[in-house]
Design a protein around this nucleic acid. Structure first.
Lengths: 251, 251
DNA sequence: CCAAAAGTGTTGCCTCTACACCCATGC
DNA sequence: GCATGGGTGTAGAGGCAACACTTTTGG
């Protein structure tokens, strides 16, 4: 039975804040799919989000960065607090209780916890998915094919996606989800996936280029069996300046 | 020295979640001023936001409603989670430490806490400001004249106001901040105060009435020394339908 | 009668959307 | 050479901001 060791995690004796955890929705984009990183608990077929408790000597944001670093190998990731899940009985549905009993010792664990939800946007190609001490497997799942998860994690993912769609109006999130160099059709497909609707390519290009934060590179991407698209990258300085002034609307 | 009693609040023995608190920015609108409710600690001149710990048997949202009810006498208030303040050293600035030493016994209290920030929008005229067991006074302050507060509460207020301005684009917040019946000039002044800029009265009326959620009453407000304005009220059904469909933009 | 606030329409600009054809590439 | 996806311009509609005068009221 696992979570007792959360009380003293290996390799770090810093005590933990009790009854407070965080959950991370780590999102990547690959093959025109929005994907989320999930963990499979040891010796079970049960999946859940990465997450865990917060140490007394780290900020909540730092705890989220740490969990992300441990599961993906990446530092300095885009992270966004989006909601606090503070219901008293977050996992009281009978079918969840059944599953939890198989994994956890209720004595040790059935204490209420408040969880802070973060979503992270990462470059899929740079992630090295790594399970933790309690899980056998760490894997990407297409956001449309997520299985029934432990705890209230299916709900948490839905709330995160809604927050992400909202954020898309204020901030070009492709910056975080795509590799440094990408094509406009790739960026458009990312937007279409998140918003779950088709966009007109002419209008899309006009709008995105109009933000003035993309730089067209003097090369094209070869290798597709078709006309080769231009490569672009974000102009970091202009992107950040635009963010500060709140000029990067989309809708 | 006070906060030891937070460990067992009077009139309720439900145990508390340790190291987790919430802070409420309670906002009202009066005399063309946006005002926030602050508390003055017993036998001091030090002010802070209402807030406190969460009980084991209540949800975080319910705790916020409870705190609000206790300070204002109002039930069923518009409340919005807006940020989690999770730094390790939230009150480490020297000038704050000095003040805190005068009020609290450091032995009992200098434990780290994570705080969940809520803002509440209330009808000023219905509020009955009530101090709690640790404070002498509960009073409205003009948002532009807030004194130096305990803890990191000045910072929390700034973050709340920014979140409120964002929310204004998506949701007509006058619904919560004004009495049931109000005039369009009053509503406009509320918007001008929150956004901190002048708006054109013709454009403002067109836009707000265009949302289709206001109902003009067959009476005017008498008593001003000038032309009497029409009274309006929100059409609750249309307001809520519009919210669901996300049609109530402002910007 | 005067001062102060409330109420109201129009115009130009700019932004958004809708829409279709040619081009480049690898096979 | 052909199938596939990439790249591009224009026209119409709708929304937004700028703008000033008349009406009402109490004093």
């Amino acid at each position: 039975m696992l979570p007792e060791s959360w009380l003293e995690p290996e390799k770090n004796n810093a005590p933990l804040i009790p009854q407070l955890t965080l959950d991370c929705i780590i999102l990547g984009f690959h093959n025109n799919q929005l994907r989320v990183l999930l963990l499979r608990w040891k010796n079970t077929q049960e999946w859940s989000l990465p997450g865990g408790p917060i140490r007394q000597n780290e900020s909540v944001n730092a705890a989220a960065q740490r969990i992300l670093q441990e599961r993906t190998g990446l530092d300095d990731i885009f992270l966004q607090q989006f909601h606090v899940f503070g219901e008293v009985e977050r996992y009281s549905r009978a079918e969840i209780q059944e599953k939890l009993k198989l994994i956890f010792d209720p004595e040790l664990w059935y204490e209420r916890a408040v969880s802070i939800g973060y979503y992270a946007l990462v470059d899929y190609s740079r992630v090295n998915p790594t399970p933790d001490a309690y899980t056998d497997e760490c894997q990407w799942w297409d956001i449309r094919e997520i299985p029934f998860l432990l705890f209230d994690h299916n709900h948490i993912i839905q709330v995160a996606l809604q927050a992400l769609r909202n954020q898309l109006s204020w901030q070009p999130i492709g910056y975080n989800l795509l590799p440094h160099e990408f094509t406009l059709p790739e960026l458009q497909k990312l937007y279409e996936t998140i918003l779950d609707r088709k966009l007109d390519p002419r209008n899309f290009q006009r709008k995105l280029l109009g933000l003035g934060i993309l730089e067209r590179l003097p090369i094209r991407r070869k290798g597709g069996a078709h006309k080769s698209p231009y490569l672009y990258r974000f102009d970091k300085a202009k992107y950040e300046a635009g963010l500060k002034e709140g000029n990067l609307f989309f809708i």
